[in-house]
Write a protein that binds this DNA or RNA. Sequence first.
DNA 1: TCAAAACGTTGACATAGGGCAGCGTTATCA
DNA 2: TGATAACGCTGCCCTATGTCAACGTTTTGA
Lengths: 189, 189
Amino acid sequence: MKRTLKDKLKNCIGASDMAIEEVLACFKPVKTKRNQIIIDFEETCKYYYFIEKGSLRLYTLNVEGKESSRYFGFEGNFCTALPSFIDQQPAMEYLQSLEKCDLLAISRADFFKMVDKHGFFARIYLEILELGFITAQKRIYGFQGFDAMEKVKWVINNQPKLLLRISNKMAASYLGISPSTLSRIKAKL
Amino acid sequence: MKRTLKDKLKNCIGASDMAIEEVLACFKPVKTKRNQIIIDFEETCKYYYFIEKGSLRLYTLNVEGKESSRYFGFEGNFCTALPSFIDQQPAMEYLQSLEKCDLLAISRADFFKMVDKHGFFARIYLEILELGFITAQKRIYGFQGFDAMEKVKWVINNQPKLLLRISNKMAASYLGISPSTLSRIKAKL
DNA sequence: TCAAAACGTTGACATAGGGCAGCGTTATCA
DNA sequence: TGATAACGCTGCCCTATGTCAACGTTTTGA
């Protein structure tokens, strides 16, 4: 049930068995259906999720109702509407399951309690932030001023799993191009 | 000389005068000319900079030599090629002064020493990362699938100082539109 | 297991915005 | 402070990509 998360924690330097058990105990199992909205647009995010099985997507809708995806999470990833989780404002985005998922949820209070109490968990949080920041910067540079073809190539190089596991429609909304354009580009390569 | 930084540190909760002095002592003054390259493309970033006076820009060049800007820092901001500072890879971007600047530089070693030693400084680092992450996410959502006009409006709302202090050319390279388009849009508003 | 809905692909068409050039204004630094 | 270079604005033209529609295929869940 918590196999994947436990393995992940065990790989941390300086994490005693007892500390790991204490952290693990904070995570409660949550099962979702396919296409279930886990965090709604107006909602304030209360949990951090770990994906034991399945996949999640973070996306938002612009004024005309067009989707824009910013993150896809798979087995072994942490995932939540982080800006909202951090400063407790309405998420202004959706967290959605793409398949049936086995998630593990930790409440915000428990999360920051563990961050304060256990150095190894604080380091996990720091690494999530560092990695999130770096990925976002790369994506900004990787997309800015490139045409559709180059963006697709960028994703193939930087997140090869993505185009394989995600529908065309969603990948297009991640790339910021229309599904037809993505389809045409795929045909050329 | 370190007036602005000192004031900033004094506003931190749980920062004793002694701890503040110890942190301050790690920052060495650096003066720059206008348009000086502070971190070069291939360089690995060794310092974190605090801006006492002046302004900085982070940008990169794509294959065709086109500029893409991702951050503008002003008085009171911290600024560095953070991805490179974190994982000690070549920056793949430039840090440039936009005016004569008074900077304060802390070495990577000292920086992380202070993060480990002083809770209040660790919190500053965490806040930089959290804010950087949140800003990057907002920018991704704010730019994705919007036309040039809407992007300009977005920046006016979210970073009002930017268009006032930055040249058209650089603002355009931040927005991912051409200077001519930015010019035309400004004429309409 | 099958009907209905969602999705992917492709063609025709429309358009936002890029590139370039010319001109006047502003900024730079020797 | 003045010569030179950089910048901002605007008109013209052109291309990449969005929109829409049609059609066949795949997926879904009752």
